[in-house]
Amino acid sequence: MNRIQDMGFLILFSFFSLLYCKPDYGFVLAFLLCLCFCSIGYVTESSRGHLAAGLILISFSLFLPRLCIFFPAVFYIFFMDHLYIPVSAGSILCCYHIISADKNRMLFLMWIFLLTALSFCLQRRTEISENLEQNLMKLRDDSTEKNLLLAEKNRMLVEKQNSEIYAATLKERNRIAREIHDNVGHLLSRSILLTGAAKTVNKEPALDSVLENLDQSLNQAMTSIRTSVHDLHDDSINLKEAVTGLASEFQFCPITLDYDMGYEVPKEIKYCFISIIKESLSNISRHSSATEGHITLREHPALYQLCVEDNGKTSDPSNKMNVHVSSDSRSRGIGLSNIKDRVESLKGTLQITADNGFRLFITIPKEQE
């Protein structure tokens, strides 16, 4: 847009030459030719095309001397492509036409040279402005890209930090459960045994109720400790690490894992998914000709999703509930039946397809609070 304005100003200033000459058909034709050349020069980006068209226009001024009035606008196109030799040739030709005139030669010559200098200055100013604008846009794009990369790295660091905190929390829970079981549990077991022995050898009727209450209290404490230890141990299971270990240890065929689950997964869901994945991998190794498999675990706002699939073929693809199980009639379908029972106990749904390989698709809804 700045270049259009510059060429428009130069053409407008060239009209001041009407103070020294009369407007005629030659002047109008020269204006139209200059306007066409400037339009073509702005639209196209070929330096050779600009040079060829400009030389033709300058040569045509031999037959139409009024063209030299609009040479500053033509020179602007040459300055854009840094074609200074055609500018020199055009300036010499312009001087020849002006000197050949009868009147106002020096004043008109000074006016043309002033417009030529103005054309050069305008072109340099616009070129510098465009370069600065391009550099600014490049700097802005680079800054935006770096900010996006930095935000992505920060997100990954936060996610990694949360994952490490979650893993450390689970390990600490497991350690606490082990410490309670090994220390407090053993002490309570010893106390219960000693209390039982005291009840056996006791011969004082007054101590019977005391020893009985002590025995009941110790047994209640042991029950509470066992419940707490089991809860801590169940909560300390890391679903991602467990599934990753199952996939990496599977030797029958390569297994890829797509894990997208949150940290607060109920222990019932964890045990259900781990058991189903174990059963599915066992079926793949025993009853499938698969060369690759894929496990997907994903958490949605309202449900948990598990998908186990492979590219293996089965001998009885029409019976979908019996795919990948033993041919023994007594055990046929027991694995998938167990999977179905586990899913239904959590109010989930199970879909099994065997069209192009085997696919086990499970969804379990989240509990509504």
Score class of each variant (00 low, 15 high):
Ser59Trp: 05
Phe31Arg: 02
Phe13Glu: 11
Ser47Val: 04
Leu10Met: 08
Cys68Tyr: 14
Ser59Gln: 04
Tyr20Met: 02
Pro65Phe: 02
Phe27Val: 13
Ile40Asn: 12
Ile11Trp: 09
Ser47Ala: 10
Phe31Leu: 14
Val74Tyr: 06
Leu32Pro: 10
Phe63Thr: 10
Pro65Asn: 10
Gly41Val: 04
Phe16Pro: 03
Pro65Thr: 04
Ile58Leu: 12
Tyr25Val: 04
Asp6Ser: 09
Phe16Cys: 07
Phe75Cys: 07
Gly41Ser: 15
Leu35Thr: 14
Phe37Glu: 13
Ser47His: 08
Val43Ala: 13
Leu67Thr: 09
Ala30His: 07
Leu55Asn: 00
Phe37Arg: 06
Tyr76Thr: 02
Ile40Ala: 14
Cys36Trp: 15
Thr44Lys: 13
Leu12Cys: 14
Leu18Thr: 09
Phe16Thr: 09
Leu57Met: 03
Phe60Met: 09
Ser59Thr: 13
Cys36Tyr: 13
Val43Lys: 15
Val74Leu: 13
Ile40Val: 14
Phe31Glu: 06
Arg48Trp: 11
Leu29Val: 13
Ser46Cys: 09
Leu64Ala: 03
Ser59His: 05
Leu57Thr: 08
Tyr76Lys: 03
Asp6Lys: 01
Leu35Ser: 15
Leu64Lys: 10
Leu51Thr: 11
Asp6Asn: 14
Phe71Met: 05
Asp24Glu: 12
Asp24Ile: 01
Ala30Ile: 07
Phe9Met: 10
Leu55Ser: 01
Tyr42Glu: 11
Phe70Trp: 12
Val28Leu: 15
Phe60Trp: 07
Leu62Ala: 10
Leu64Tyr: 05
Ile40Arg: 15
Leu55Ala: 09
Leu51Cys: 08
Phe37Ile: 09
Lys22Met: 08
Leu35Lys: 00
Cys34His: 06
Gly41Tyr: 11
Lys22His: 13
Ala30Asp: 05
Leu29Gln: 08
Leu67Trp: 06
Lys22Thr: 10
Leu57Ser: 05
Phe70Thr: 01
Gly41Phe: 03
Pro72Lys: 05
Arg48Gln: 14
Leu62Tyr: 15
Gly26Asp: 05
Ser14Pro: 08
Gly26Lys: 02
Phe15Leu: 15
His50Val: 14
Tyr25Leu: 14
Glu45Tyr: 04
Pro72Trp: 04
Phe71Thr: 04
Phe27Cys: 01
Asp24Thr: 11
Thr44Ile: 00
Cys68Met: 10
Pro72Phe: 02
Lys22Asp: 06
Leu62Pro: 08
